[in-house]
Nucleic acid binder design. Structure first.
Length: 254
DNA sequence: ATGGTCGATAGTCGA
């Protein structure tokens, strides 16, 4: 089963840039997307349905903001939008789908780049999310958690660790949260297969960052430790361009 | 990088 995750930075803009052709050629079993920046009725679901997918969207209340979706060929037995708390769910950040004993969670974690208030919200969210996912795990112990974490974990995951040491997305407390999250028994699947440097999933549109590969690895596939033996491959598809992020992939035997 | 780039919106804001 090949599962992809892709922060689209606007699904309508991404589709204008040929997203559907890429999906058709790549043929993912499941595609998790973040930052759709659209209400459900603004999204061209039909183009995915024509390729054999079902779509499940969780949009933000605010138009043009945030929003996630799961685009899937295998039919999940159960889909849940949000985390059951309107304070967070109004921002359209989580959609979950259950496939047999495995639960797939697609998350667009908040960015903190627009000011201290949003940085505080991000840290609050991260604490909430870890508690929420740990509760869910008691009933659903086999978890795949993917999406845009908006945090580069280690120095290897960012082009300029020194220069970004005080920037949101690479703050010590954010990186410490990732350590804490992993210590609960989650695995960063990309690093099971790739130890090399300069593998990134997001580049700012400014400063010609992408052509210079001045990027950050902020998109992840985590799995619970009990699924590690099922993981066949994990990768980053840097050459795919419909967004300021690129897609990431997990191949897992489920 | 005291401005630079995008997407979605019609507030300029958020990333």
């Amino acid at each position: 089963m090949k599962i992809y995750s892709y922060n689209l930075n606007g699904i309508r803009a991404a589709m204008k840039k040929g997203l559907i052709d890429w999906v058709k050629n790549e043929n993912p079993d499941i595609l998790c997307v973040q930052e759709t920046k659209a209400q459900e009725d603004q999204i061209d679901s039909k183009s995915f349905e024509e390729l054999g997918y079902s779509t499940y969207w969780h949009s933000a209340k605010k138009k043009g903001y945030s929003g996630v979706g799961i685009i899937t060929k295998p039919q999940p037995e159960n889909v849940v939008k949000g985390v059951g708390n309107p304070f967070y769910d109004d921002e359209g950040r989580v959609v979950r789908a259950d496939y047999g004993e495995v639960t797939l969670i697609n998350v667009y974690h908040p960015s903190g780049t627009s000011g201290q208030e949003r940085q505080d919200f991000k840290m609050q969210w991260l604490e909430f999310f870890l508690n929420w996912v740990e509760e869910l795990r008691k009933e659903r112990p086999y978890l795949i958690i993917t999406g845009d974490l908006n945090i580069a974990h280690k120095e290897i995951d960012i082009h300029d660790p020194i220069g970004n040491a005080k920037n949101s997305g690479f703050l010590p407390e954010e990186r410490a949260w990732v350590d804490k999250f992993l210590s609960h028994g989650y695995v960063d699947t990309f690093r099971l297969f790739h130890t090399e440097r300069q593998r990134y999933s997001w580049w700012t549109y400014r400063f010609k960052a992408r052509e210079k590969n001045k990027g950050w690895r902020i998109d992840y596939f985590f799995v619970t430790e009990n699924l590690v033996e099922k993981v066949r491959d994990a990768d980053i598809l840097e050459n795919v361009v419909h967004s300021d992020h690129c897609p990431i992939m997990l191949d897992i035997d489920i």
